[in-house]
Nucleic acid binder design. Sequence first.
DNA 1: GACCCCATCTTTCCACTGTAAAGATTTTTT
DNA 2: AAAAAATCTTTACAGTGGAAAGATGGGGTC
Lengths: 205, 205
Amino acid sequence: MTVDGKSTTYHHGDLRRAILDAGEEELAARGVAGFSLRRVAARVGVSHTAPAHHFGDASGLIEALAERGFLRLVACMQDRQARAIQTPYERLIATGQGYLDFALSEPAMFRLIFGLSDTPKEGSALQAAALSAFLVLARAVGEFRGQDPMQSAEGRIEVLACWTRAHGMADLILSGYIDLPDGDPAERDAFFRNLLAADLSPRDT
Amino acid sequence: MTVDGKSTTYHHGDLRRAILDAGEEELAARGVAGFSLRRVAARVGVSHTAPAHHFGDASGLIEALAERGFLRLVACMQDRQARAIQTPYERLIATGQGYLDFALSEPAMFRLIFGLSDTPKEGSALQAAALSAFLVLARAVGEFRGQDPMQSAEGRIEVLACWTRAHGMADLILSGYIDLPDGDPAERDAFFRNLLAADLSPRDT
DNA sequence: GACCCCATCTTTCCACTGTAAAGATTTTTT
DNA sequence: AAAAAATCTTTACAGTGGAAAGATGGGGTC
């Protein structure tokens, strides 16, 4: 039922979306450790057990939030790709920088995504979202090396190498153990570029 | 007071150490998310507020546990170094493999260490432990490149590159998004070696 | 050796958390 | 129109960390 323009129904009408929106706000405000179902429900103005019907238990809500997170990670990487100089290497760099953009702009969500207690269930929307993020990276590596990287052992190593480097950098920055060069965003980008490509292969010995 | 050989005093006598020991067991058993002060206290057989006097609040206990964690991380890296072929490059590889050993053998502790809500306080024992871990890595990089890496921008990049790669790999494996080659430990070591040294520098373009 | 101070630990209480169960209200279906 | 299903609320409960005040005993001083 609607009164005026507002929906004042006993049933909320769009509670699932509202809870997810509020959940993201709470996550950003309090972090993953201070995340509270009751507070999310209160923010929406609904009883604290209302989310259960849509998400099962707390971990269900967490997973639904993580799905959103992966989609925004994809958006961050694609955004950087679109703005990059359109050579395969620059697009690869840009993909990693987008990964870092996401971690820095939504640290709590980043931690949520990669701190899930168990790996996404087979066939779940969460798994699909996570896979789509992986494919953005894999595709960028594929363009860089000229063939599908997932078809060879060397290619798979290169994809994982790119991923682990961007991820390790993001995670250690969020931990506070690595300081980002502050100020000019260009410095930050150069820092990432150097770190990604740094040569650690055996030399003389 | 002592009866037999056992200390049965009202005062525990060595409660701080006992709580830390129990805390590690609880951490390993329940993970960082399911960590409970009360359960730790119960495991020691003491009231649930007893830890407060030694550690302040829960985060104080967490930090004290993290200090232990860093020291065992150091031990893991040094153990691998000692077992490695004694060339600078092999020692560097071994250091990273020790990092991974630690993450895999104590995943909850690894997550605890790098998930601290805020960076270690200046002058704290935790900071010293974290620094000692960093220095093990920095020293290995220094031996590899022939000079103190922290004296030049390129050197610092190399240290961070090594760290972020090992860390990203460890964290993504613990997240379940990257599968370790199971079975032969030699395969695991080769996997790490390939990932660390993989070349992602610009090619023709 | 007697005494007092204080570090240590316990008891009790409180606000907060997530979940289960049962009831109330609205929508949908039959 | 009646029945069924979905949605949300109320209530209750076991668990959490922390604050406050009381109990206990060790260590220092006289």
